[in-house]
Amino acid sequence: MSFSRNLAELFTPLCSSKCFSLYTRISISMAMMLIPMTIQTLFKGQKIIATIYTFILALTLLSICSNLKRVLRVLTLILIFIVIGFIVIAISKFLGYPTPTLKELILSSVNLVTLFLSISLFFQWTSLRELRWILTKMGMSRLANLTTATLAFLPLLLNNYIEAYIAILMKFGKRKVYKAVNSLIIHTTMIANDVAQAIYLYGLPQTPRVKVERPKLLEVLLIATIVILAMFLIIVAP
């Protein structure tokens, strides 16, 4: 439950109004997503300092907004995938297939984690209203509507899913815990009915009127510092 709730809250806007202006929030989180992707694509297995810099920066920004302990706990999910990757590579090496070096592996994993943190930063910093506004401005109003309906219920579903898992674990024991899938299907069907009902009764939300303030000088400086420092480290540092 804690894990599920933490995971759900990682994608729930928690303090969008308390943080920076919308432009700043989008710019920083986008930059934070692009930096690890650039390093991974163009400098695979290199740029240790730039990789560590973006990782620490992502953690720092998230800890300002959210609970760092919770963020780290949720990282266990992504660590599972990383461990699976390591195992697959170990088996490949054992079978004599070409494999990346240990340095490459570690740096790729850190980049992956940074990317995950940056995506979660984007969702925590951008409310659904703002996201919808952005998509509508980009001429994707239909996608904006679909995103609204889906994302609004995602945290709620994640929250309920673990509850169903525990209820069924206690009902049938470990051997038949897979039956939780059935109750989840039943529950999701009901939620789908309710969503349809809510959309019918309230209609899909209108294109929101979002207050877009110009970023303050300090915010511009912050964005510039983050990007310039990252570029400097990518170009100059090893």
Partner: peptide
């Protein structure tokens, strides 16, 4: 009541609805 809201934060949801 959980299924009345089409946005994760009720205040945002109410604002969207009121704007209509």
């Amino acid at each position: 009541p959980y299924t009345h809201f089409l946005e994760p934060v009720p205040l945002d949801d109410m604002l969207s609805y009121a704007e209509k």
